[in-house]
Design a protein around this nucleic acid. Sequence first.
DNA 1: TAAATGTTTAACAATTTTGTCAAACAAATA
DNA 2: TATTTGTTTGACAAAATTGTTAAACATTTA
Lengths: 196, 196
Amino acid sequence: MATRDTGTEKLIKDTAKRVFFAEGRLHATTQDIADAAGVNRTLVNYYFRSKDTLITQVYEEGMNDLSQRLAQVMETEKPFRERIEDFIDVFMADSMEFPYQETFLITEMNTRGNLYHKENMSEKVENFSKQIQAEMDAGRLEKMDPIHFAMNMFSMMIYPLVMKPMYKQFYSMDDEQFNRMMLERKQLVCNMLFKK
Amino acid sequence: MATRDTGTEKLIKDTAKRVFFAEGRLHATTQDIADAAGVNRTLVNYYFRSKDTLITQVYEEGMNDLSQRLAQVMETEKPFRERIEDFIDVFMADSMEFPYQETFLITEMNTRGNLYHKENMSEKVENFSKQIQAEMDAGRLEKMDPIHFAMNMFSMMIYPLVMKPMYKQFYSMDDEQFNRMMLERKQLVCNMLFKK
DNA sequence: TAAATGTTTAACAATTTTGTCAAACAAATA
DNA sequence: TATTTGTTTGACAAAATTGTTAAACATTTA
């Protein structure tokens, strides 16, 4: 059937992503999403048939998006350090917009019972680990299991953004101060990773 | 009214904490919790009146618990580095048991709209920042805004545990391998923080 | 313009989740 | 032992959330 493309379907999905990934309202109802999108709730069913379908699509697209962003750091041809620098710059900018993306994905995995992801990351991840190992062998990185390097990198980039509401309270910061903090972090995380 | 103390109230609350903080099933219903506890769902209402009350109690106790655990690192009298070492050891052990505690708290804050916490951490946090600053001034730590030191520490401890399901998939690990990894991390996180 | 087709809406129905109550039960105590 | 009091249970009720339908609406196209 020839769709008329009013943009409503995309609007609903994008709004759902905003509510889940950006605002971190993981318990949002279809009504919440419809309200946030400024449309009638029935349209969620018209375009997605059920809440479950919408959530599944948001989950899969969120997962695919993450996979692609990860592939980015694991595949480029630039020198290692430069590549990490670029990656941190891009990845943190993304995470500042959607801090709860990974949290949403994990929560879904935990509630539905480990949904597996078709795309096989194993090969890419292994390759990335080898690259890290090579840097270590060349004496340009502190020696450790390469997985720790990856964990350190992602932790330091994402987690402070997830904990933003707490940091704002504990350190009495407003949004602007916090965001400045996070921009500073791009450089700082890089330093932490390459310090020897 | 003299309670007979069958332990049921505590059982329900502890089970709720297990479901939310340990299993990360943030959408769990009262039925889910009752089932996990092996009790009749009606008892949730008998002891807590409403789901909301239960959640609020779990939230507040989770927040208090976190406050106390944080106070631990900010107040002890030992030398700074030793204190951090001890703290990482204890805090990571706790987080391995309840990886999603902070995630639950943040999610609640996001869905209810920044519940504030009576206990004022500002003073303790400021004091902790001063201690970090002192270490930096003494040349024992890389210079940076003290908040980054704290963010780095908590990120590297907690986030990999939250992302466990993903790491297990991406790196093809079982639970035992992953746990070994996390025990290694105690030392490693400490090294990262004090490397100059 | 009229018919056809896709979109949006409101009213309604079904399902899921939560809350209430009275009766059954068990332990303490008079 | 009988009574009292607190606990547990199942049946039921209420509320919240999700899903369906028919009609109104708007756009395309014959």
